[in-house]
Design a protein around this nucleic acid. Structure first.
Length: 735
DNA sequence: GGTTTAGATGTTTTT
DNA sequence: CATCTAAACC
């Protein structure tokens, strides 16, 4: 029994063991929620090491987020110790960045390439549309971009798209597509889809390079396989092409990224491409109570396009799912906050064990406000992401420009930030002039500076300003090898005048912005110990690829987590609140008219529900602010699919009058304490009656936003209850 | 060329 | 409702 490999199998059920031990050849694991699939993957890696002697360094494990990769590493560390550090774990994008950094030049991806984010892509598409005179009124740039992105994630270039084009729209897309790719190339840039597509292209063309990576990773594993797109799957097949040790783990019912071109059919393709593949199903749920699992199962059965998985659990039945119905978004948030508070005080639940999940980021605001009001610490995941903030993007644009002067998007972004008298008109002229000379904008600037008499469209004043800017870039570039990244960032902010402009501006957020810049500088400290010229490419790559800046920290701090239903995938909490269970929000209004999208919305709800271990709250508001106006919210159609006997409904008989609802609606934030200044309705010690609970004695009367919460000890075995005064069911006894 | 303002406009999810 | 755009104004 001293066999270290055997100990890894302890505590696993038979299918889990099978998945762990099946270390030769292709493997498909279809795993329901809470089935311990992450555990199976890490154990499999450890088993490969202990039993077969495969070093973790020869294994690539692709995860959906960087967070998941980090988690996998630490789990593996617990099993294997030091050796685990050599595992290559990360997203497909990170893996591709690594490959391209080393071998990309073979297909013309320059060593110093930069990665464009979606905002940059948008501006490039708009520019490409102007260039090809495509009317942005008739063809929204966003739609064109998503068509381009769809084509790219299916490994179609402009020409391939044109070849299978069917109609005018594709023709338009094709034109913009080609111009867009040209603009990327001119800027030495790749977008997220290129990262994948160029790597696939590299492996198609350069078999020596492919062979090296095939030998490097003799085992390849993909988690969340249901959310991979065509390019990602192709890449996995390429790398696993020699050893055929490709293991994929997925759950079709949790596929929620089709809008990012994830293709659930990859699971079918896998079985076709690897007919010899072993298929293992993990159906036992170790996470949730039976009630929660059953409710989720019933919900997901509402989808017609699916294969039934018979999930089961041996966990206890647990408490019923609570339905929370509030009048407004604010009340919904307050009820959530109040309940979270109650759980921490009465039920021994830590605040960290609770999570509030919602469909759209905008919903977080009401919750945040409720948390502030009740003094709950919270942590917002996602939201306006750090790297997207204006000042951070400005700084990144400077750094990118200093790494790659041909990055035109960055150049036009910062050429007049802070204002240097180089307005839109001048910038347009510069870009047009550069294009007429068929050189990048940066080269045009150099021309302007070096050849005094070269004919240009600029007068002396503009010429002076432009060459001053060029001088600034060159000056900073010269500093790059002489100092470390944090110091270089300081110099950039100083010499560009950015910091000073921010200090002198009357922007009310100036302080925050400086804080953010300081924070960014702090991040760059990780790359200290080497000159900025070395650190910059890796720093910028990190910035582009690692989106989960506000990662969930594994510390002891107590806070309520606020997160979207998309980001919560892969996590679990004892208590889950899902807010906005309304038609139009979940399912989202943009998905209502498409059956396929509607099924995806249902899967999103399913993912949310199955995150809960013990308690699940489904919350909705009758009225919600949308488009600036209030709209009536109908309950989510998904609620109907949850069996009523699994749900505990609010006491409808005690519902407040419509008039009172209107009052709350008009002044939702009125009176943070007590009912608008009204005196407490009862005092401790008073005798009261309740229609359902009978006679009781008031224990306490605490003020609540817009209300009072009365604690009453009822006679007999009714026990102590907390009731909201506005429900109006309590009356003074003995009158 | 810069700045302010009114007006329109468009609202999901993220590596 | 908040953010972006275009046009008027400085």
């Amino acid at each position: 029994m001293a066999d270290p490999a055997e100990t890894l199998l302890r505590g696993l059920n038979p299918p889990q063991r099978e998945a762990v031990q099946c270390v030769d050849g292709p493997l498909l694991i279809v795993a329901g929620p809470g089935s311990g699939k992450t555990r199976v993957i890490t154990h499999r890696i450890a088993y490969l090491n202990r039993k077969v002697g495969v070093s973790p360094g020869r294994i690539a494990a692709v995860t959906f987020t960087n967070r998941a990769a980090r988690e996998m590493r630490s789990r593996l560390g617990a099993l294997l110790g030091d050796g685990a550090g050599r595992l290559t774990a990360g997203t497909f994008h990170a893996l591709c960045a690594m490959i391209l950094r080393r071998d990309g030049e073979a297909i013309g991806v320059p060593n110093d390439y930069v990665i464009m984010d979606d905002e940059d892509q948008m501006s490039l598409v708009k520019q490409a549309m102007e260039q090809t005179s495509v009317d942005s009124k008739r063809f929204p740039a966003r739609a064109i971009l998503s068509a381009i992105s769809r084509a790219k994630s299916q490994l179609l270039g402009p020409d391939a798209l044109a070849a299978q084009s069917d109609g005018f729209y594709d023709e338009v897309v094709h034109r913009v597509f080609a111009a867009y790719q040209a603009a990327l190339a001119r800027s030495h840039a790749v977008d997220f889809d290129d990262l994948l597509g160029k790597t696939v292209e590299l492996f198609r063309r350069d078999h020596a390079a492919l062979g090296r990576w095939q030998e490097r990773f003799i085992h390849f594993m993909v988690d969340e396989f249901q959310d991979t797109n065509t390019a990602q799957y192709e890449l996995a097949r390429q790398i696993a092409g020699r050893h055929r040790n490709l293991a994929v783990v997925g759950d079709p019912d949790q596929s929620i990224y089709s809008w990012r071109n994830a293709d659930i059919r990859n699971i079918l393709s896998f079985q076709k491409d690897y007919p010899e593949a072993r298929v293992v199903r993990l159906s036992q749920n170790y996470r949730s109570t039976e009630t929660i699992l059953q409710a989720a199962q019933r919900l997901i059965r509402g989808n017609s396009q699916r294969i039934e998985q018979d999930l089961f659990t041996e966990n206890a039945r647990g408490v019923r799912i609570r339905l929370v119905e509030a009048y407004t978004e604010e009340e919904e948030a307050q009820e959530v906050a109040r309940e979270a508070l109650r759980l921490t005080r009465e039920d021994g639940v830590a605040l960290r064990d609770c999570v509030v999940a919602y469909r759209v980021n905008a919903q977080s605001r009401a919750i945040e406000e409720a948390c502030l009001r009740y003094g709950l610490r919270y942590k917002l995941i996602g939201g306006v992401r750090f790297y997207q903030r204006r000042e951070v993007k400005d700084l990144i644009a400077y750094l990118r420009l200093l790494q790659d002067p041909y990055d035109e998007v960055s150049l036009t972004r910062v050429v007049n930030v802070p204002v240097r008298g180089i307005g839109k008109r001048t910038v347009d002229e510069l870009v047009a002039w550069a294009r007429s000379l068929d050189v990048p904008a940066y080269t045009a600037l150099q021309l302007l500076a070096d050849q005094d008499d070269y004919p240009s469209p600029f007068d002396a004043r503009q010429k002076r300003r432009l060459t001053d800017f060029l001088a600034l870039l060159n000056e900073l570039s010269a500093l790059k090898p002489t100092m470390e990244a944090p110091q270089f960032i300081d110099e950039t902010l100083e010499r560009s005048g950015y910091r000073r402009a921010l200090l002198e501006s009357d922007d009310p957020d100036a302080e925050d912005r400086l804080d953010n810049l300081r924070e960014f500088r702090g991040l760059s400290a990780e790359f200290a110990g080497e000159p900025a010229s070395e650190a910059l490419p890796r720093l910028l790559e990190r910035v582009a690829l690692v989106a989960d800046q506000d990662a969930i920290e594994e510390n002891e701090e107590q806070y309520l987590t606020l997160i979207t239903l998309h980001q919560i995938k892969g996590l679990e909490y004892r208590v889950v609140f899902i807010t906005g269970m309304e038609d139009g929000l979940l399912p989202h209004s943009r998905s209502l008219d498409d059956p396929d999208q509607l099924e995806e919305e249902r899967r999103i709800a399913y993912v949310g529900m199955t995150r809960a271990r013990e308690r699940l709250y489904l919350c909705r508001a009758l009225r919600r602010r949308m488009f600036g106006a209030m709209g009536a919210g109908l309950p989510s159609r998904f609620l109907k699919d949850v069996p009523p006997d699994l749900i505990e409904k609010p006491d409808r008989s005690g519902r407040r009058s419509e008039r009172e609802a209107a009052r709350v609606f008009r002044a939702p934030a009125a009176a943070a304490n007590g009912a608008g200044g009204a005196p407490p309705p009862f005092r401790a010690g008073e005798k009261v009656t309740h229609p359902a609970f009978g006679l009781g004695v008031v224990v306490n009367c605490a003020s609540r936003p817009g209300d009072y919460e009365v604690t009453v000890a009822f006679a007999g075995n009714q026990g102590v209850k907390r009731l909201l005064h506005s429900y109006g069911k309590l009356e003074r006894a003995g009158a």
